[in-house]
Design a protein around this nucleic acid. Structure first.
Lengths: 125, 125, 125, 125
DNA sequence: GTGGTCTAGACCACT
DNA sequence: GTGGTCTAGACCACG
């Protein structure tokens, strides 16, 4: 269910967090669902268990999952809402990027087009 | 003319590159203009000369600037065009970010608004 | 596998870049192969780690290699193609040199012979 | 008669030496001809007199000119022969370059073509 | 004075 | 352990 790109500059643990984020927001993973075990996911992705643990800790910090010692790690009831809130906060990143590109001579329309392309490409899937 | 935020996670040399990029694109620095000397900028920004040197080397690699040992560092004739081209290439980053945010439940309109805010805030200055 | 000539006027980091270029083009290093670590190569060649780092950064900039912090530095999938493309671009250097030598009274045949000597000496190895 | 490119990476004094080399080899300057004065050439090219002096010193070292204190600087009788000899020595540079390019996947034919292009472009002028 | 290279030694985040 | 950034201080060639 998860795929990681070891060649990417994005830290592996962050890739895992992002993908869980996406799966929950898309409704593929639902509140109450159990996450794979740290050791299981470690072998499945051929990734160091420490890295998986770091991702899970981050997911817990963000409130997307609740770890129950001895039982496992479960998607939190309000995960989707939290993710949506976090998404809105990240609009600031887009604002910063847009400002930078605008200062480099990219037009408002070109940026709107890029956003539309992204949205449409996602709708198709 | 340049300002550095030492607390930022963005490397100092990258901050310098970005700011020169902006100044050239805005026409504040023009082709043929001489950049501040490595040592001069070093003391002005209280940054190690090697860090400035790294920024200047990067600017040269990108073709924004031509460094002439013993003479100085000058804005290249086609710097603005190169910067614009690089800006268009970076639209891919915006597409990736937009896709991610969309998957987190952010709407197309909210993203368009973010772009518009960025453009308008820059126009005001 | 790499050898450095500290007495040469060619910067050490450029020597490293050139040699890796050669090894990859010759198929001795293949896509996906891991480069020696910065520190490891540093002690092996008795060169400062910063110098190695500079070489690796340049290799990354040229797309021959992808550096993954915390994991290592790996030969890029399309490294050989990029190197070949760069080689063709550098034919311009040969043209400039040939023109200069011709103006100094060196004949076309003498230059062809020099090229042939170089090619043959490389084939023998 | 001489033209220098301040933006070039090639040192100004070397540009001057090369151009005098070319003019003599082409027969435009002949043995016995007087070189421009250091001060005169300095203002004509808008170049620091020290730089001109350095070029003249190098020309003298190579035996292309003989400086007569108080009278001036004159093209040596055997200048053309010396230049031709130097040209042949520089075939080594071409050999090194050819070997490098060959190792980067450039073919023998492509290099021969580059040499021919250079020779032909010079013949046309 | 200029840019460019190198060494030495430190710190950071990530695996 | 890895790569990446930064500081401090030195040396070089060029103008």
């Amino acid at each position: 269910m998860l795929q990681i790109d070891v060649m990417s500059r994005i830290p592996v643990y962050e890739q895992i967090v992002s993908q869980v984020e996406r799966l929950v927001a898309a409704g593929i993973m639902s509140p109450g669902d159990q996450m794979p075990s740290v050791r299981g996911l470690s072998v499945e992705l051929s990734v160091n268990p420490n890295t998986i643990q770091k991702a899970y800790t981050e997911l817990d910090n963000r409130g997307y999952v609740t770890s129950v010692p001895g039982k496992g790690c479960f998607i939190a009831p309000d995960a989707a809402a939290l993710i949506n809130r976090r998404g809105k906060q990240r609009l600031g990143e887009m604002e910063v990027l847009a400002k930078t590109l605008y200062q480099m001579g990219v037009t408002r329309e070109e940026m709107h087009d890029a956003v539309d392309r992204a949205v449409d490409s996602d709708k198709k899937l």
